[in-house]
């Protein structure tokens, strides 16, 4: 059945080489991505009076087959980043390439074809399934939209997908309200796998689940990654699950990326004061370490993304800020191999 969803795997060698970094191939490359949501005002004729700078110039790349974690407090623009990469929101500025192809300028049929290769798993297991559709129809929808297979073939594929995510294929006639949160999340996962994507943006897929269920879903995600060779952008608002799941982690604050490093490196050697504060809030299983650990409590609130602070946007809460932090926006620089930080004090 997978033969009905052909993936364009073959790439000319030159293109392949272009995106080689060491022995890893870059699958997704994001450069200076911006997404501003306009705020309009006016009774009949509306003018743009301001903009929510949800994503304000982020750059990173994701290697094929890896899991990149994207963490940060809620409202810092993680979901917007994920959705803009998938072209669910059109970027205000910047570029997103997938296997070397620019996505931000794609339109119509080309964009639709691209959508087969990148999918999304959502946060809210209740809102992400249409309550009026049966499980079978929900999981088959991507196939229907892309006109793949006959009705029979689609039914077979749906059964296969349900099994893949650990659900009984007999569930096709049931409706979402009959399932628990974890089961619903599996249904959503089955839907996102229907088209054999290479890349999945998982937007806090476990945040809404019971702790007991979270590990199951994370294990399933890892299993699927191994079996299907998937690449994940895994969005989370706390760092505890991320360490276990992600190869590399990017930390986001107020629309910008402040630090990217390999998972172990980030946890053992956080350089940005914001990352340090976030990590200090993660409980450590070792009681001795836990005892000595100092919690860094950040003062104040996250500033509004409509009016981010001048200079480094963390300067209102930073415990180590100096004059330059109020004047200049720090660049994201590679201070150690594969360890990037945006801070004047590093």
């Amino acid at each position: 059945m997978s033969s009905t969803t052909p993936n364009v795997q073959t790439q000319p060698d030159e293109v392949k080489n272009l995106f080689q970094s060491g022995d890893k191939r870059v699958l997704v490359e994001v450069k200076n991505l911006k997404k501003y949501f306009p705020i309009k005002s006016g009774i009949v004729f509306q003018r743009e009076v301001a903009a929510v700078k949800a994503v304000d110039g982020v750059s990173f790349h994701i290697y094929e087959g890896e899991t990149l974690g994207l963490v940060g407090e809620s409202g810092c623009g993680k979901s917007t980043t994920g959705r803009t990469i998938l072209q669910l929101y059109r970027a205000t500025d910047g570029s997103v390439t997938f296997e070397g192809q620019e996505l931000t300028t794609l339109k119509g049929e080309q964009l639709r074809r691209m959508r087969r290769r990148m999918q999304m798993v959502f946060q809210d297991p209740y809102a992400s399934l249409n309550p009026r559709m049966s499980v079978g129809r929900i999981v088959a929808e991507p196939l229907v939209v892309h006109g793949i297979g006959t009705k029979r073939e689609r039914e077979e594929r749906v059964a296969e997908l349900l099994e893949l995510v650990g659900l009984n294929p007999y569930f096709v006639r049931r409706y979402p309200h009959e399932f628990s949160g974890g089961q619903r999340q599996r249904i959503g996962l089955a839907r996102s796998l229907a088209l054999n994507p290479k890349f999945i943006v998982a937007d806090e897929p476990i945040s809404a689940l019971d702790v007991s269920i979270q590990a199951q879903v994370v294990n399933l995600l890892q299993q699927l990654q191994q079996d299907l060779g998937l690449t994940y952008l895994f969005i989370a608002h706390d760092l505890s699950m991320v360490r276990h799941l992600c190869d590399r982690v990017a930390v986001m604050y107020l629309g910008k990326i402040v630090e990217i490093a390999e998972s172990e490196e980030l946890y053992t050697n956080p350089l940005h004061p914001y990352t340090q504060a976030l990590l200090s809030a993660v409980p450590v299983p070792d009681p001795k370490v836990e005892e000595k650990r100092q919690r860094i409590i950040l003062k104040g609130d996250v500033p509004s993304p409509i009016n981010p602070p001048h200079g480094c946007n963390f300067n209102t809460r930073c415990p180590v800020s100096v004059d330059v932090c109020f004047e200049q926006d720090p660049e994201l620089v590679e201070v150690l191999p594969e360890h990037w930080v945006a801070c004047h004090r590093v």
Partner: peptide
């Protein structure tokens, strides 16, 4: 703004659909 509509958009469903 519900996620199931977003999901449909993510697979490339038309406005009509």
């Amino acid at each position: 703004e519900q996620e199931f509509v977003e999901a449909a958009r993510a697979v490339g469903a038309s406005n009509r659909r």
